[in-house]
């Protein structure tokens, strides 16, 4: 089991990189860009076999950041390709990430239906 402090360290560092990117390149980087950037770089690093070591060290510190979501998509795809060939390339990613995607959309919708945006002072 990955110790908690390693998750803290790896997760914290991954977030810090995002903050550097935002503060140095402002104004053109929005949270949307950060999310897209992380899922893409996580997926690419994972394909090159470079993200798994990070997951081994940091556990949730590497899987909770959105780069971990990209990693999950790619690993799911690669595994499915081994089993099902070409079809796997198109089905494996979503299968592996299904829980995350579905919960985000369903919880997101339900919360949006129940709550209203609040006024900030």
């Amino acid at each position: 089991m990955v110790p908690l402090y390693m998750a803290f360290l790896v997760g914290g560092l991954l977030c810090m990189i995002g903050q550097v990117v935002m503060d140095v390149t402002k104004p053109n980087i929005t949270p949307g860009h950060i999310l897209v950037g992380y899922i893409t770089s996580g997926a690419i690093l994972s394909g090159l076999g470079l993200y798994q070591p990070l997951v081994n060290w940091g556990g949730a510190g590497a899987t909770v950041p959105l780069s971990g979501f990209g990693h999950l998509l790619v690993q799911g795809t690669l595994k499915a390709v081994e089993q099902r060939g070409l079809l796997g390339a198109f089905s494996g990613g979503v299968e592996a990430a299904a829980a995350g995607i579905t919960s985000a959309i369903v919880f997101g919708y339900v919360v949006a239906v129940i709550f209203n945006p609040r006024v900030k002072e």
Binding site: M22, K26, P27, T30, P31, P117, R118, V119, K120
Partner: peptide, 11 residues
């Protein structure tokens, strides 16, 4: 700008 509830740091 951004939706009200999105966690964005204001410049």
């Amino acid at each position: 700008r951004f939706p009200t509830e999105q966690g964005v740091q204001k410049a």
